[in-house]
């Protein structure tokens, strides 16, 4: 089994203020999806990223916002175990990101021997 990282990318919508119920429903959706991967024994780790962010460039140039030049941001990630990238891609099925108009980038995690 190799490890793959899924990056959840989406364009932030500053006008969208979800209600507590909507937030709850969204947590359930994400947890069900992650739980489904974990039930297959393929879960490694995950993190959700917040809105706060700065970008640091050489020469200690700090700009606001996590987005470099792009409009979209990384909202979080999950690391999964899969035999190959095709299997990792198949695990994105049912990912709530698609419903929110975002997309999922699947990348292999490099094992570097030091």
């Amino acid at each position: 089994m190799k490890e793959f990282m899924m990056l959840f990318r989406h364009e932030p919508n500053p006008n969208y203020q979800p209600s507590p119920e909507e937030i709850q429903a969204s947590i359930k959706q994400w947890q069900d999806w992650i739980g489904s991967i974990a039930a297959q024994g393929k879960f490694v780790s995950t993190n959700q990223l917040g809105e706060e962010g700065k970008t640091v460039k050489p020469g200690n140039v700090v700009t606001d916002g996590p987005y470099a030049e792009l409009k979209e941001i990384v909202g979080g990630y999950i690391i999964v175990k899969a035999a190959n990238i095709e299997e990792a891609v198949a695990l994105t099925e049912g990912c709530p990101m698609f419903e929110y108009g975002g997309h999922v980038e699947v990348r292999n995690v490099m094992q570097i021997d030091v």
């Binding site: 069900d32 974990a38 039930a39 024994g41 879960f43």
Partner: peptide, 28 residues
């Protein structure tokens, strides 16, 4: 059952075992 399902979802992220995976599926 909603609570049990969500707890199993979290538990599987802390520790996987076949029994937890099966119980989670039953809760689903």
């Amino acid at each position: 059952w909603e609570r049990i399902l969500q707890l199993y979802n979290l538990l599987l992220q802390v520790e996987y075992s076949p029994m937890i995976a099966l119980n989670r599926t039953y809760a689903l």
